[in-house]
């Protein structure tokens, strides 16, 4: 199983290449030499105790947080920086925005735009960032709403939707930019238990065709959808492997401790 999953992905192009990423919040060392490779169509789920830096790492991948050293490449391009005379210089806002447009992000607290309807939320960036004609963006948006099962909520404002529905609209909104990578930052942890399933179902379907990095504690989802699990603690990736290996036969003591806490 372990061999099967690695041989399946090894020949695919690399989408995310994080190399020795370090980040500090003041004197706090929150990311310590984090190195991770994600290949096309892979779904990598990052687990770990709170405060371990997993959300911060995810936010570094689209440069919502700046890194202090190391490099992150998405589709073989440096994120947030470019090289000049062997030194890394922060990129212009325009270039950073252009790169972010290729990376979809789904947040814990949905962050839908409350002054726009579900459909308007979805077509906002395609129309104003990509300059897609409105008709085409609407047609596309309606297809995406159908895909997340919310065609009938097209003209509802976020405040009129349940948490699970809002998160599904947020996923559709990110997909509307046709990203090559999707980042999910604890997408179900702000949801009532009965709504978690509907969001995970959408994500499972998505995992079959997309490259995804997901910060989540949903073990059922991780087992069903992940190609790889990365366990983070104290700002570092401690252990990495297939779900069967990490959940069934963890090598590291720290991983065992963590799993014993969340599995019971």
């Amino acid at each position: 199983m372990e061999l099967a999953s690695s041989s399946l992905t090894n020949d695919k192009p690399i989408i995310v290449q994080a190399d020795k990423v370090n980040k500090y919040f003041g004197s706090l060392h929150v990311l310590k030499n984090v190195t991770l490779t994600v290949r096309q169509n892979e779904t990598v789920i990052v687990i770990g105790p709170s405060g371990s830096g997993k959300s911060t790492f995810l936010r570094c991948i689209n440069h919502l947080e700046k890194i202090n050293s190391g490099t992150i490449r998405v589709n073989d391009r440096l994120i947030g920086y470019h090289e000049r005379n062997g030194k890394l210089v922060e990129d212009t806002e325009k270039n950073i925005s252009r790169q972010r447009a290729e990376i979809g992000m789904v947040f814990q607290r949905f962050n839908l735009f409350p002054h726009l309807t579900a459909l308007e939320n979805i077509i906002e960036a395609p129309v104003h960032v990509r300059k897609t004609p409105v008709d085409a963006a609407i047609a596309d948006g309606e297809r995406l709403l159908a895909r997340v099962g919310l065609v009938d909520k097209r003209d509802k404002y976020p405040a009129q939707l349940s948490g699970g529905q809002q998160q599904r609209v947020a996923i559709a909104r990110a997909l509307a930019m046709k990203p090559s990578l999707m980042l999910f930052d604890e997408p179900t942890s702000a949801l009532d238990p009965e709504m978690i399933g509907e969001v995970l179902d959408v994500m499972k379907e998505l995992a079959r065709q997309m490259t995804m990095v997901v910060v989540s504690h949903e073990m059922g989802f991780a087992t069903a959808a992940a190609n790889r699990i990365a366990f983070m603690a104290d700002g570092a990736i401690i252990e990495e492997g297939s779900p069967d290996q990490v959940f069934g036969n963890p090598h590291e003591e720290r991983t065992k401790q963590f799993l014993s806490k969340i599995l019971h």
Partner: peptide, 23 residues
């Protein structure tokens, strides 16, 4: 306004100016 609004706008590829104006 919740800072998450600016983050969501930026993650969709909006510049600061566009996010201010639209969101």
């Amino acid at each position: 306004i919740d800072p998450g609004q600016m983050e969501a706008a930026k993650s969709l590829g909006m510049t600061f100016g566009l996010a201010m104006q639209r969101i």
